[in-house]
Amino acid sequence: MENNRKDRKAGNGFIYSLIAVVVFAAAYYVVTGTGVLNPNERTISSAMSAYKLYSEGEKKNTVVLFFGDAVSGGYRPVKAEIYSSKLPVNRIKQTLLLLTAGPSAADCRQFLPEGTALKEAYLDPNNILYVDLSTEFASNCRGGTTSEYYAVYSIVNTVMLNFPAVRGVRILVDGAEKKSLAGHIMLESILKPDTDSGDVNI
């Protein structure tokens, strides 16, 4: 009788442990999305809320995203709205999610290689922003100076011209430093915005 009760207790304990592990794993997946926010698989708003990038009721701010112009080949600044989260890095993440999602207008081009997703973004104490992107950012890059240039600086310009407190951008691919995407633009340095082009002012 006593042994049966002990066996039942042990069995319940195992089931509770199993449920706890499953719940923890599910929560971890929801919170981190296993590290990748893929705009093709989720809506931007669900991705943002999964990451708790804003709270309901927060005001909205306008940001400018640097996409490509199908006619000129240069930048096409496009306005978008984000929530005014208290943490600056959350505002930056919202902006980068919108950038990785791509433009909706037919005459705009996405400079980022197909499938590029934001894995993480964080600010160091010197206000250098580390942007960690999925492997597609490098693996789907077709090469060529121009395509690499605009892929990199559409990110740098979007961040630094919307968030002046950011002093520079480091780009990581799948959590690691990379010399370049395909042998052209150096990624190992802290990058500043491309102010040479006439269409980068916002």
């Binding site: 490509g68 199908a70 006619v71 080949g73 400079f111 077709r142 060529g144 100076t145 121009t146 395509s147």
Partner: peptide, 14 residues
């Protein structure tokens, strides 16, 4: 080098 631009109408040397 030879370039690649996502914009097919982009043409010329650089």
């Amino acid at each position: 080098h030879c370039d690649y631009s996502v914009n097919e109408s982009d043409s010329g040397f650089r």
